[in-house]
Amino acid sequence: MKNVEETKRLFNNSTLFYTISTDMDGKYSYINEHYAREFSYIDSNLVGKPYHITMHTDDINTCIEVSTKCFENPTKLFPATIRKHDGKGGYVYTQWEYKAMFDDKKKPAGIFCLGYNITKFVGEELQLQKANEKNEKNSNTIKNIIFQQSHLVRAPLSNIIGLTSILDKTLLDSNTSNICDMILESSNQLDQIIRSIVTDARS
């Protein structure tokens, strides 16, 4: 308990970290000034109140599971990510480390927690995830374009070029022959454009 009391004093005026402790009945036995300010809209004095009134109900089981691990492994710290009410109908994300507390007779006395707000980090992670999903979607689109241009478009175009080239122009009048030449030239130009598009898409 001595180390816990020293930690409480050290972080009591922190503007970044939350420090709290709960007793064996699951009620706040201590909160630092930063935690008190951040969640004062829930209650002006949280000490003596149930720990779960500040959090998302789905995260209560996480607290129970992590606290159980703490008492099973008294020398270790265990992490937990907890959503807290933001006072606006939403939640802030907080990251914590839990440690079991014992009294002078080595009996369980509660849980000490050190935490901080990670809402901005979580938001950036979600944005990054969306960006990666968008990039993956774009990548698949590009792959489809490459396939379509390489196989679905160029195949009939190659046939047009081939058929135009093998026409027996001796049987054609000069005007029709000239049209065939223009078809062949335009087909070759289109083929080069498609090749260029495929090359750029692959690079």
Rank of each mutant, 00 (worst) to 15 (best):
N3W: 10
E5P: 06
E5S: 09
E5H: 11
E6S: 12
T7N: 15
N12R: 09
N12D: 14
F17Y: 13
T19H: 05
S21G: 10
S21I: 04
T22A: 01
D23I: 07
G26V: 02
Y28I: 01
Y30H: 07
N32K: 06
H34A: 01
A36M: 01
F39G: 00
Y41C: 03
Y41R: 03
I42E: 00
D43W: 03
D43V: 00
S44G: 05
S44L: 07
S44V: 06
N45A: 04
N45L: 03
N45S: 04
K49A: 00
T54N: 09
H56Y: 02
H56I: 00
D58T: 05
D58N: 11
N61D: 10
T62D: 02
C63M: 00
I64F: 02
E65D: 13
E65W: 07
S67I: 01
C70V: 05
E72M: 10
N73K: 15
N73L: 12
P74F: 06
T75F: 10
L77Q: 04
L77T: 02
F78P: 05
A80I: 06
R83Y: 03
H85Y: 05
D86S: 03
G90L: 08
V92R: 03
V92D: 02
Y93P: 02
Y93W: 14
T94Y: 00
Y98K: 11
A100Y: 04
F102I: 05
F102N: 03
D103K: 13
D104V: 12
K105G: 09
K105C: 11
K106Q: 12
K106L: 09
K107H: 09
A109S: 15
G110I: 04
G110N: 05
I111K: 03
I111Y: 03
I111E: 02
C113T: 14
L114E: 10
I118R: 00
T119Q: 10
V122M: 08
V122W: 02
E124N: 12
E124W: 13
E125L: 15
E125H: 14
E133N: 13
E133A: 15
N138Y: 14
S139V: 07
N140R: 13
I142T: 07
I142Y: 07
N144M: 14
S150V: 07
S150G: 11
L152A: 15
L152E: 15
R154D: 04
R154P: 02
A155H: 10
P156N: 01
P156C: 04
L157A: 08
S158M: 13
S158T: 11
I160H: 07
G162K: 05
L167P: 00
K169T: 08
T170M: 02
I179T: 11
I179W: 06
D181L: 06
D181C: 04
E185T: 14
S186R: 09
N188G: 07
L190G: 08
I194N: 14
I194G: 09
V198Y: 05
T199G: 07
T199F: 11
S203V: 07
S203D: 10
